[in-house]
Protein backbone atom coordinates (compact mmCIF):
# COMPACT_ATOMS: atom_id res chain seq x y z
CA UNK A 1 0.00 0.00 0.00
CA UNK A 2 1.40 3.32 -1.00
CA UNK A 3 1.20 6.52 0.97
CA UNK A 4 -0.83 8.20 -1.73
CA UNK A 5 -3.36 5.35 -1.71
CA UNK A 6 -3.70 5.81 2.03
CA UNK A 7 -4.18 9.55 1.68
CA UNK A 8 -6.69 9.02 -1.11
CA UNK A 9 -8.69 6.69 1.13
CA UNK A 10 -8.43 9.17 3.97
CA UNK A 11 -9.91 11.86 1.76
CA UNK A 12 -12.71 9.57 0.63
CA UNK A 13 -13.44 8.75 4.24
CA UNK A 14 -13.56 12.42 5.20
CA UNK A 15 -15.92 13.14 2.31
CA UNK A 16 -18.46 10.48 3.22
CA UNK A 17 -17.91 11.12 6.91
CA UNK A 18 -18.86 14.76 6.39
CA UNK A 19 -22.23 13.71 4.98
CA UNK A 20 -22.86 11.34 7.87
CA UNK A 21 -21.89 14.08 10.30
CA UNK A 22 -24.28 16.61 8.78
CA UNK A 23 -27.16 14.17 9.05
CA UNK A 24 -26.12 12.89 12.47
CA UNK A 25 -26.24 16.35 14.06
CA UNK A 26 -29.99 16.66 13.71
CA UNK A 27 -30.60 13.11 14.90
CA UNK A 28 -28.43 13.67 17.91
CA UNK A 29 -29.94 17.02 18.89
CA UNK A 30 -33.49 15.74 18.61
CA UNK A 31 -32.72 12.50 20.42
CA UNK A 32 -30.96 14.44 23.14
CA UNK A 33 -34.10 16.41 23.94
CA UNK A 34 -37.02 14.17 23.06
CA UNK A 35 -35.56 10.64 23.11
CA UNK A 36 -36.89 10.33 19.59
CA UNK A 37 -35.03 8.33 16.97
CA UNK A 38 -36.22 10.23 13.97
CA UNK A 39 -36.32 7.69 11.17
CA UNK A 40 -37.69 10.38 8.88
CA UNK A 41 -34.54 12.49 9.24
CA UNK A 42 -32.70 10.84 6.34
CA UNK A 43 -35.75 11.43 4.19
CA UNK A 44 -35.44 15.20 4.64
CA UNK A 45 -32.04 14.84 3.04
CA UNK A 46 -33.71 12.87 0.26
CA UNK A 47 -36.35 15.55 -0.28
CA UNK A 48 -33.75 18.28 -0.60
CA UNK A 49 -31.91 16.07 -3.09
CA UNK A 50 -35.00 15.27 -5.14
CA UNK A 51 -36.16 18.88 -5.25
CA UNK A 52 -32.64 19.91 -6.21
CA UNK A 53 -32.61 17.42 -9.06
CA UNK A 54 -35.96 18.73 -10.26
CA UNK A 55 -35.41 22.44 -9.88
CA UNK A 56 -31.83 22.74 -10.98
CA UNK A 57 -32.64 23.57 -14.56
CA UNK A 58 -34.56 26.64 -13.44
CA UNK A 59 -31.98 27.77 -11.04
CA UNK A 60 -28.79 26.66 -12.71
CA UNK A 61 -27.66 30.24 -12.91
CA UNK A 62 -27.16 30.29 -9.18
CA UNK A 63 -26.15 27.06 -7.42
CA UNK A 64 -25.61 28.98 -4.22
CA UNK A 65 -29.18 30.22 -4.22
CA UNK A 66 -30.40 26.67 -4.87
CA UNK A 67 -28.28 25.41 -2.03
CA UNK A 68 -29.62 27.89 0.50
CA UNK A 69 -33.20 27.56 -0.71
CA UNK A 70 -33.20 23.77 -0.45
CA UNK A 71 -31.62 23.82 2.99
CA UNK A 72 -34.33 26.23 4.14
CA UNK A 73 -37.07 24.08 2.62
CA UNK A 74 -35.75 21.03 4.49
CA UNK A 75 -35.47 23.06 7.69
CA UNK A 76 -39.03 24.33 7.43
CA UNK A 77 -40.32 20.88 6.57
CA UNK A 78 -38.61 19.50 9.68
CA UNK A 79 -40.25 22.25 11.71
CA UNK A 80 -43.64 21.41 10.23
CA UNK A 81 -43.23 17.70 10.95
CA UNK A 82 -42.37 18.46 14.55
CA UNK A 83 -45.49 20.56 14.85
CA UNK A 84 -47.86 18.13 13.13
CA UNK A 85 -46.57 14.68 14.02
CA UNK A 86 -44.31 14.87 17.05
CA UNK A 87 -45.61 17.67 19.25
CA UNK A 88 -48.96 15.99 19.93
CA UNK A 89 -46.95 13.09 21.33
CA UNK A 90 -45.05 14.95 24.03
CA UNK A 91 -45.16 12.86 27.15
CA UNK A 92 -46.30 9.74 25.31
CA UNK A 93 -44.31 6.51 25.57
CA UNK A 94 -41.01 6.54 23.69
CA UNK A 95 -42.18 3.77 21.41
CA UNK A 96 -45.02 5.92 20.09
CA UNK A 97 -42.55 8.55 18.94
CA UNK A 98 -40.43 5.89 17.27
CA UNK A 99 -43.42 4.45 15.42
CA UNK A 100 -44.60 7.88 14.35
CA UNK A 101 -41.24 8.72 12.85
CA UNK A 102 -41.30 5.43 10.97
CA UNK A 103 -44.73 6.36 9.62
CA UNK A 104 -43.57 9.86 8.66
CA UNK A 105 -40.61 8.34 6.86
CA UNK A 106 -42.92 6.05 4.95
CA UNK A 107 -45.19 8.95 3.98
CA UNK A 108 -42.27 11.04 2.73
CA UNK A 109 -40.78 8.19 0.71
CA UNK A 110 -44.02 7.03 -0.86
CA UNK A 111 -45.19 10.60 -1.39
CA UNK A 112 -42.04 11.46 -3.31
CA UNK A 113 -42.40 8.26 -5.34
CA UNK A 114 -45.95 9.22 -6.20
CA UNK A 115 -44.92 12.69 -7.30
CA UNK A 116 -41.62 11.97 -9.03
CA UNK A 117 -41.73 8.18 -9.69
CA UNK A 118 -39.20 5.91 -8.11
CA UNK A 119 -36.59 6.04 -10.83
CA UNK A 120 -33.30 7.84 -10.12
CA UNK A 121 -32.95 11.44 -11.25
CA UNK A 122 -29.86 13.08 -12.51
CA UNK A 123 -28.58 15.77 -10.18
CA UNK A 124 -27.05 18.57 -12.23
CA UNK A 125 -23.85 20.03 -10.99
CA UNK A 126 -21.52 22.84 -11.91
CA UNK A 127 -18.10 22.44 -13.49
CA UNK A 128 -16.17 23.63 -10.46
CA UNK A 129 -17.75 20.93 -8.32
CA UNK A 130 -17.45 17.98 -10.67
CA UNK A 131 -13.85 18.77 -11.56
CA UNK A 132 -11.05 16.66 -10.11
CA UNK A 133 -8.28 18.70 -8.54
CA UNK A 134 -4.86 17.04 -8.40
CA UNK A 135 -2.48 17.45 -5.51
CA UNK A 136 0.53 15.37 -6.43
CA UNK A 137 -0.78 11.87 -6.94
CA UNK A 138 -3.88 12.54 -4.85
CA UNK A 139 -7.07 13.68 -6.52
CA UNK A 140 -9.94 15.46 -4.86
CA UNK A 141 -13.30 16.20 -6.41
CA UNK A 142 -14.57 19.74 -6.01
CA UNK A 143 -17.83 18.54 -4.47
CA UNK A 144 -15.92 16.65 -1.79
CA UNK A 145 -13.88 19.71 -0.89
CA UNK A 146 -17.02 21.80 -0.67
CA UNK A 147 -18.65 19.13 1.50
CA UNK A 148 -15.72 19.01 3.85
CA UNK A 149 -15.50 22.79 4.27
CA UNK A 150 -19.23 23.22 4.71
CA UNK A 151 -19.26 20.51 7.37
CA UNK A 152 -16.37 22.01 9.29
CA UNK A 153 -17.98 25.43 9.04
CA UNK A 154 -21.27 24.03 10.35
CA UNK A 155 -19.46 22.32 13.20
CA UNK A 156 -17.75 25.56 14.20
CA UNK A 157 -20.93 27.61 13.94
CA UNK A 158 -22.96 25.13 15.92
CA UNK A 159 -20.32 24.81 18.60
CA UNK A 160 -20.21 28.57 18.92
CA UNK A 161 -23.99 28.72 19.03
CA UNK A 162 -24.42 26.09 21.72
CA UNK A 163 -21.57 27.40 23.89
CA UNK A 164 -21.87 31.13 23.55
CA UNK A 165 -25.48 32.13 23.00
CA UNK A 166 -28.22 32.09 25.58
CA UNK A 167 -30.52 30.09 23.30
CA UNK A 168 -27.78 27.58 22.59
CA UNK A 169 -26.97 27.04 26.25
CA UNK A 170 -30.69 26.72 26.95
CA UNK A 171 -30.86 24.04 24.28
CA UNK A 172 -28.14 22.03 25.98
CA UNK A 173 -29.85 22.50 29.33
CA UNK A 174 -33.16 21.23 27.94
CA UNK A 175 -31.36 18.26 26.45
CA UNK A 176 -29.75 17.44 29.75
CA UNK A 177 -32.77 17.80 32.01
CA UNK A 178 -36.09 18.94 30.74
CA UNK A 179 -37.84 19.46 34.07
CA UNK A 180 -35.06 21.48 35.59
CA UNK A 181 -34.74 23.60 32.47
CA UNK A 182 -38.41 24.52 32.78
CA UNK A 183 -37.68 25.62 36.34
CA UNK A 184 -35.19 28.07 34.83
CA UNK A 185 -38.04 29.63 32.87
CA UNK A 186 -37.29 27.92 29.56
CA UNK A 187 -40.30 27.02 27.45
CA UNK A 188 -39.00 23.77 25.95
CA UNK A 189 -41.09 24.07 22.81
CA UNK A 190 -38.68 26.66 21.47
CA UNK A 191 -35.43 24.74 21.82
CA UNK A 192 -37.19 21.65 20.49
CA UNK A 193 -38.46 23.47 17.42
CA UNK A 194 -35.05 25.03 16.94
CA UNK A 195 -33.34 21.63 17.17
CA UNK A 196 -35.67 20.31 14.49
CA UNK A 197 -35.06 23.34 12.30
CA UNK A 198 -31.28 23.32 12.54
CA UNK A 199 -31.04 19.55 12.21
CA UNK A 200 -33.34 19.42 9.21
CA UNK A 201 -31.57 22.35 7.61
CA UNK A 202 -28.26 20.49 7.84
CA UNK A 203 -29.92 17.34 6.47
CA UNK A 204 -31.06 19.47 3.54
CA UNK A 205 -27.51 20.72 3.07
CA UNK A 206 -26.34 17.10 3.09
CA UNK A 207 -28.98 16.24 0.48
CA UNK A 208 -27.65 18.78 -2.00
CA UNK A 209 -24.05 17.80 -1.29
CA UNK A 210 -25.02 14.17 -1.77
CA UNK A 211 -26.46 15.01 -5.18
CA UNK A 212 -23.30 16.87 -6.16
CA UNK A 213 -21.13 13.98 -5.01
CA UNK A 214 -23.00 11.08 -6.60
CA UNK A 215 -24.71 12.87 -9.47
CA UNK A 216 -28.08 11.19 -8.97
CA UNK A 217 -30.81 10.83 -6.37
CA UNK A 218 -33.97 8.74 -5.91
CA UNK A 219 -36.84 8.76 -3.40
CA UNK A 220 -35.34 6.02 -1.27
CA UNK A 221 -31.77 7.20 -1.04
CA UNK A 222 -32.15 8.89 2.34
CA UNK A 223 -33.24 6.06 4.55
CA UNK A 224 -30.07 4.00 4.87
CA UNK A 225 -27.73 7.00 5.24
CA UNK A 226 -30.18 8.22 7.87
CA UNK A 227 -29.77 4.98 9.78
CA UNK A 228 -26.01 5.10 9.37
CA UNK A 229 -25.99 8.66 10.62
CA UNK A 230 -27.77 7.41 13.70
CA UNK A 231 -24.98 4.87 14.10
CA UNK A 232 -22.55 7.78 13.80
CA UNK A 233 -24.45 9.74 16.44
CA UNK A 234 -24.33 6.76 18.79
CA UNK A 235 -20.62 6.28 18.18
CA UNK A 236 -19.96 9.93 18.93
CA UNK A 237 -22.22 9.98 21.96
CA UNK A 238 -25.87 10.63 21.27
CA UNK A 239 -27.12 14.00 22.41
CA UNK A 240 -23.72 15.60 21.92
CA UNK A 241 -23.31 17.93 18.96
CA UNK A 242 -19.51 17.69 18.74
CA UNK A 243 -20.01 13.95 19.22
CA UNK A 244 -22.19 13.80 16.10
CA UNK A 245 -19.39 15.33 14.03
CA UNK A 246 -16.73 13.08 15.55
CA UNK A 247 -18.98 10.03 15.10
CA UNK A 248 -19.70 10.95 11.48
CA UNK A 249 -16.01 11.10 10.66
CA UNK A 250 -15.16 7.95 12.63
CA UNK A 251 -17.88 6.05 10.78
CA UNK A 252 -16.98 7.47 7.37
CA UNK A 253 -13.30 6.66 7.79
CA UNK A 254 -13.98 3.20 9.24
CA UNK A 255 -16.29 2.36 6.37
CA UNK A 256 -13.93 3.57 3.66
CA UNK A 257 -10.93 1.85 5.19
CA UNK A 258 -12.93 -1.35 5.60
CA UNK A 259 -13.71 -1.33 1.90
CA UNK A 260 -10.35 0.05 0.82
CA UNK A 261 -8.06 -2.35 2.61
CA UNK A 262 -9.89 -5.64 2.29
CA UNK A 263 -10.22 -7.72 -0.88
CA UNK A 264 -12.83 -6.27 -3.27
CA UNK A 265 -15.13 -9.26 -2.67
CA UNK A 266 -15.79 -7.87 0.81
CA UNK A 267 -16.96 -4.47 -0.34
CA UNK A 268 -20.62 -5.57 -0.44
CA UNK A 269 -20.44 -6.28 3.26
CA UNK A 270 -19.78 -2.69 4.25
CA UNK A 271 -23.18 -2.30 5.91
CA UNK A 272 -22.61 -5.49 7.89
CA UNK A 273 -19.44 -3.86 9.12
CA UNK A 274 -21.14 -0.55 9.92
CA UNK A 275 -23.98 -2.10 11.89
CA UNK A 276 -21.74 -4.58 13.65
CA UNK A 277 -19.77 -1.55 14.75
CA UNK A 278 -23.01 -0.20 16.18
CA UNK A 279 -23.51 -3.44 18.13
CA UNK A 280 -20.03 -3.22 19.53
CA UNK A 281 -20.34 0.42 20.54
CA UNK A 282 -23.75 -0.17 22.13
CA UNK A 283 -22.44 -3.08 24.15
CA UNK A 284 -19.01 -1.77 25.09
CA UNK A 285 -19.41 1.98 25.39
CA UNK A 286 -23.06 2.93 24.97
CA UNK A 287 -22.40 6.53 25.94
CA UNK A 288 -20.20 6.91 22.85
CA UNK A 289 -16.96 8.79 22.46
CA UNK A 290 -18.06 12.21 23.70
CA UNK A 291 -21.30 11.34 25.44
CA UNK A 292 -21.78 11.62 29.17
CA UNK A 293 -22.30 8.43 30.99
CA UNK A 294 -25.65 8.60 32.65
CA UNK A 295 -28.05 5.98 33.93
CA UNK A 296 -31.03 7.57 32.29
CA UNK A 297 -29.52 7.27 28.85
CA UNK A 298 -30.32 3.57 28.97
Amino acid sequence: MSASYFIQQLINGLAIGSLYALVAVGLSMVYGILRLINFAHGDLMMIAGMLGATLFLWLSKSPLFLFVALALVAGLLGLALERIAYRPLRGAPEVNLLITSFAVSSILQVGMQMIFSSSPRRFETVAALSKLYSFGSVQIRGADMATFFITILSALLLTWFTRRTRTGIAMRAVSENLDTSMLMGINPSRPIALAFFIGSLLAGVAGVLWGWKYGQVDPLFGFLPGLKAFVAAVIGGIGSIPGAFVGGYVLGLAEVFFVGFLPPSFSGYRDVFVFSLLFIVLLVKPQGILGQSKGRRA
Partner: peptide, 18 residues
Protein backbone atom coordinates in the same frame (compact mmCIF):
# COMPACT_ATOMS: atom_id res chain seq x y z
CA UNK B 1 -35.37 0.97 25.26
CA UNK B 2 -34.37 2.71 22.08
CA UNK B 3 -30.91 1.27 21.97
CA UNK B 4 -32.37 -2.20 21.92
CA UNK B 5 -34.76 -1.23 19.12
CA UNK B 6 -31.91 0.16 17.07
CA UNK B 7 -29.90 -2.98 17.81
CA UNK B 8 -32.67 -5.16 16.39
CA UNK B 9 -32.93 -2.90 13.39
CA UNK B 10 -29.17 -3.28 12.91
CA UNK B 11 -29.68 -7.04 12.95
CA UNK B 12 -32.23 -6.63 10.16
CA UNK B 13 -29.78 -4.59 8.06
CA UNK B 14 -27.03 -7.13 8.68
CA UNK B 15 -29.16 -10.12 7.70
CA UNK B 16 -30.40 -8.34 4.59
CA UNK B 17 -26.88 -7.33 3.58
CA UNK B 18 -25.61 -10.85 4.12
Amino acid sequence: GHYLSVGTLALLVIVETL
